[in-house]
């Protein structure tokens, strides 16, 4: 009895693939041959190790460059999902070649840039063309309802409104993902603002909070930045802090000014820069605008494309820009 049941199952199991194979696809062996001949004819690019730091804008840059390296230069691209810290560690061991978007990491530069006393495993490779704008932002509905809130000097008038059970009787300022360089605690203290910095803990948490605030029309102020795909969904409004001047952020405890506009940089492994790989030129030439990045980021996070698909789509749509990088 048991035997019959079991062998019936295994029997049908055995026939299943045969039935299915009738509608089976292409020929693996053929393609294997083809690959072999391709390997023989392959270019001199070799492997390209792209770090992918955990935000969508980064992935947009990384996959566009990676896509081109793969399709145009014949590189084998390895995408490595890593946070900034670990990515930079990887320069020295050859595990990471490119960090395509860097927002400025003074501490890491000190460790890895030769001219700053580091081990010289990393070098800068010029701007990506994206301009990072970091600052304090409020939900759009607030800027509409309270136009003067975008000036820091009026913030104390609204402090009460921002109070939450998390903020200990003061107004709540939503601090950022810990990955970002930030001085909000100092700014609050030094500008004499009646706020308490409460850290969201992650970009995802910050986005969720702003999304919720806009949807429910609840007050929220916090650290944010662009380019960032979320800005196209909920266009947060920047609050003007005292203008940035050179050196005003040099001593963390004394910061009382706005964040500077940041030219986002490409950082590469020194070894990679000197390797003569055709990918070096590609990375070096790569430059685009905030809108370009935002578009790819939107493909990924709103339209639900995979990063590869999004990159391929964009490359297809923008042949002239791509052309400039490939020369």
């Amino acid at each position: 009895m048991k035997l019959r049941k079991a062998s019936a199952i295994t029997g049908s199991l055995a026939t299943l693939p045969l039935v299915l194979s009738a509608c089976g696809g292409g020929d693996i062996a053929a393609e294997e041959k083809e690959n072999e001949s391709q390997v023989a004819a392959a270019g001199d690019c070799g492997e390209l190790n792209m770090a992918v730091n955990p935000w969508v804008g980064f992935a947009a840059d990384a996959y566009v460059v990676g896509h081109l390296a793969e399709t145009e230069l014949g590189c084998t691209v390895n995408y490595k999902d890593l946070k900034e810290e670990v990515s930079w560690q990887g320069f020295g061991t050859g595990e990471v070649d490119v960090v395509i978007e860097d927002w400025g990491h003074p501490d890491l530069e000190k460790l890895y840039f030769e001219d700053q006393g580091g081990d010289g495993s990393a070098v800068e490779m010029g701007p990506t063309g994206n301009v990072g704008i970091i600052g304090w932002y409020v939900a759009p509905w607030m800027a509409e309802e309270y136009p003067d809130i975008t000036d820091w000097e009026n913030l104390n008038d609204y402090a009460d409104m921002f109070e939450t059970p998390e903020s200990g009787g003061k107004g709540q300022f939503l601090g950022a993902d810990p990955s970002y360089v930030q001085f909000d605690e100092a700014i609050v203290a030094n500008l004499g603002l009646d706020f308490q910095v409460v850290f969201s803990g992650s970009e995802a948490a910050s986005i969720a909070a702003f999304e919720k605030a806009e949807a429910n029309k609840t007050p929220l102020i916090g650290y944010f930045y662009e380019p960032q795909w979320f800005m196209s969904e909920v266009p947060l409004v920047k609050v003007n802090l005292p203008e940035f001047t050179d050196g005003c952020q040099d001593v963390a405890q004394d910061v009382a000014c706005d964040y500077p506009e940041t030219q986002l940089q490409k950082i590469v492994a020194t070894e990679f820069a000197e390797s003569g790989s055709p990918a070096v030129d590609l990375v070096s030439n790569f430059q685009w605008t905030n809108d370009d990045q935002n578009l790819v980021a939107k493909y990924i996070s709103v339209d639900g494309m995979s990063a590869e698909e999004a990159a391929a789509t964009w490359v297809e749509e923008n042949p002239d820009k791509v052309e400039a990088w490939m020369s």
């Binding site: 199991l13 055995a14 299943l16 693939p17 045969l18 299915l20 194979s21 509608c23 089976g24 696809g25 292409g26 020929d27 693996i28 062996a29």
Partner: peptide, 12 residues
């Protein structure tokens, strides 16, 4: 058999 098939046809 299933291993063999999966080595031969793309869709498997």
């Amino acid at each position: 058999v299933s291993v063999y098939v999966s080595r031969t046809y793309f869709s498997f």
